[in-house]
Amino acid sequence: MIALRRQLPLLITMVTGLVMAGQYYVPHPASEQLLTTVTKWLQIIGGFALVLGITSLFHVHAAKIRRKEAGWGYSLMLYAGMLGTIVVGLWNGGKESIDGAMTSFGWVYSYTLVPLQGTMFAILAFFIASAAYRSFRARSREAAVLLIAAVIVMMGRVPLGEYLLPISGDLSSWILNVLNASVRRAILIGVSLGAVALSFKIIFGVERSYLGGGKE
């Protein structure tokens, strides 16, 4: 039974991992077909993973409503929003517009989801600015460098900034395309080396945490 519960999953990981890694080095139509098929399969399995996440959220809010906990009305609102969107979406076959005409699902998207999402992210501008005010005071040379780079990039992104400091546009591009690019490149190389090492550990069964705990 242990073989079925622990060793077979490890074998599946190893075989699929080695096959997919080897696929990259086989320039053959069958190899390309394998990649296309497996990518499609991953998308399908990912859909089932979404079910896991959604049911978990469903349970949390259902329990809140059942027990009439503080703020249960908001959970009810969440349910109403979700079920309403699902009903409208399925009614329109998941299409926001049909023949150029906006469907009711498109209406929900344009007049509910877009404003909510846009405003939710927009208010972060205020919190970032307030956090910056509190923490960015140039206490050290490094903090000063960070502050100056941030100000230049911000000025270089808007016409007013370029009007006040004409060089800010070019300077901002240089910071983003050269200095920032070099750091991103270094971090990317470091992270990638780690990812490759982790992938090898997973394929050869050294790293097993993805199997979860519980009974063998």
């Binding site: 399908i44 703020g71 959970s75 309403g84 979406g89 998941g94 989801l113």
Partner: peptide, 29 residues
Amino acid sequence: FKLAEHLYVGVSLGYTIVKTYDTVVMTLI
């Protein structure tokens, strides 16, 4: 704010479910 926040979670979840249903269940399966 809490009302709008919970509505945001609900609507975006509903939207994701519908889109997943359309792309995965209908189109891919």
